[in-house]
Every structure is written in structure tokens, then in C-alpha cells.
């Protein structure tokens, strides 16, 4: 299953790209996806404690089970205003 991932704000600079695609097994959780990402983009691993995760337009946590068609976003704490 291929999951598109978007990095927002300075996470894109840390990753060196704004988007990527990660292949995971059926039934994989976001936690599994993150392990793949942190191997490919170690600079993001350093931000894991402050990383916010969304699937589509909803916040999710590491236990969320990914489905075909999901789009994941990773980003730092928000700063509107």
C-alpha cells in the first residue's frame, strides 16, 4: 500500500522535500510509517516529540491504522495569529 506523505512548514526543509510516498503493508499503523520516514529522513526523527500528524484533515496518533487512499501530513506545532 502506497501512502503519500506531505511535510509542512520547516519540516519540508528538514526532509529536503515537501512530499514523498512510503510503501507499507496492509494494516500498518502511523507508527510503522514513521519508522520508515525516520530512516529516510533522520532530521525529522529529531523532531518526533513535537511532530503533529494528520490523515486527510484530521489529527491522528501513532496507533491509527492506515488505509488505501489515506494522505498523511507531518508538521511542527502550529503558530497561527
Amino acid at each position: 500500500m502506497m501512502i503519500p506523505v506531505t511535510f509542512w512548514s520547516y519540516f519540508a526543509e528538514l526532509a529536503g522535500c515537501a512530499e514523498t510516498v512510503v510503501t507499507v503493508s496492509d494494516g500498518a499503523t502511523i507508527e510503522v510509517l514513521l519508522k520508515h520516514l525516520y530512516t529516510s529522513y533522520p532530521a525529522l526523527a529529531e523532531m518526533r516529540r513535537s511532530t503533529l500528524i494528520a490523515v486527510g484533515v484530521e489529527y491522528q496518533d501513532g496507533e491509527y491504522v492506515l488505509k488505501a487512499g489515506d494522505r498523511v501530513s507531518l508538521f511542527p506545532p502550529v503558530q497561527g495569529g
Binding site: 512548514s9 520547516y10 494528520a54 489529527y59 508538521f75 511542527p76 502550529v78 503558530q79 497561527g80 495569529g81
Partner: peptide, 14 residues
Amino acid sequence: VIDEMKRVVPIWKK
């Protein structure tokens, strides 16, 4: 609304 916006709305500033 402002407090919650700063907590959950994905906007960033540089």
C-alpha cells in the same frame, strides 16, 4: 477561538 486556533489550526509563520 484565538487560543484554540493557536493549538489546532495548521498555520505556521516564518
